[in-house]
Simulated assay, not measured.
Amino acid sequence: MGEIIGVVERLWRYPVKSTAGEQLDAVEVDERGLAGDRLYAVRDGSGKFGSGKNTRRFRRMDGLLRLGSRVGNRLTAPELLDPLGSPVADPDAFLRAYLQRDDVELAREDTVSHLDQLPVSVLTTATLDRLRELLPTTVLDERRFRPNILLRTPPGTAPFVEDTWFGHRTTAPSGLTLAFVRSSERCVMTGTAQPGLPHAPEILRTIARTHQNRLDALATVPRPGRLQLGDQLTLG
């Protein structure tokens, strides 16, 4: 039997890329990741997707983190939520007014992936607790880092334990298998204001200084399956 590396404490998916996430009790996970995760994005007239940064695929669109999104179990078109958490009747019209851009729309993923990197992000409580120690006056929780899985690690687990998993696989009770590959390189979104979390640029500076600007464990999904709160994950 493999080593138990933790228990699933929270599950998150982000139906519309770069908006606040939706907490889940259970979810199906396949090769693309958690069902419904980043399935939609805000797309501009040039085909770039709204994000916290500018890259070949993404365009920085400030304010998206103040919005929310959810799809529930239907996995149809998501509900877009305004900064007060209320559903928006016409997402495209709202986004154009909110972002002050007349070329944006809510778009379902097609041939170009909405994912920044790999399908699944896992963050441990050991690492999160260490950041809280380093930043005692900062309002800090996992929403800053947008993981899919927050894993409650056993007492005494070293911070940044995620680094030791690269090249290994973990298995859930359903048979779901995740293969850990690398960590995420962090950007300004870690300190961007969102509901309940004020602007905190010191977070990115601290990650850069203490851990080479990297945080979490990114994984592929060799074997699909179901994941739910309380599942123990074992490292093979």
Rank of each mutant, 00 (worst) to 15 (best):
A217S: 08
A126H: 08
G45P: 05
L80V: 10
A179I: 00
P147M: 01
G68I: 11
Q228V: 08
T170M: 14
R214I: 08
G33Q: 07
V161T: 13
Y98L: 01
A179G: 12
T171F: 12
P87E: 10
G175L: 08
R186N: 10
R101F: 01
G50M: 06
A193H: 00
N148C: 03
E105Q: 13
R144P: 07
R152S: 14
T177E: 15
D82E: 04
R143Q: 09
K17E: 02
G21H: 07
E109M: 04
I5K: 07
A26R: 11
A77K: 11
R13K: 05
R101M: 05
L215C: 11
P15Q: 04
F58I: 04
S183R: 06
S183V: 08
L39Y: 06
A77C: 10
N148D: 08
M61F: 04
A219K: 06
I207S: 02
T55H: 01
D102W: 07
R209T: 14
L227G: 05
P147C: 04
P78K: 04
E3F: 13
I4R: 15
T171M: 09
A219S: 11
S113M: 03
R214N: 07
P147G: 08
A179R: 12
L67S: 09
L64K: 02
L24N: 03
T138L: 02
F160W: 15
M1P: 13
D92R: 08
D216K: 06
L197E: 03
S46M: 05
L123F: 11
V181A: 13
S183F: 09
S86R: 15
G21D: 10
R144C: 11
D141R: 01
G85Y: 00
R223L: 10
R182A: 11
V104R: 02
G50N: 06
I4K: 15
D231R: 02
L123Y: 12
V139E: 12
Q228M: 11
S18T: 08
V161M: 10
A107Y: 03
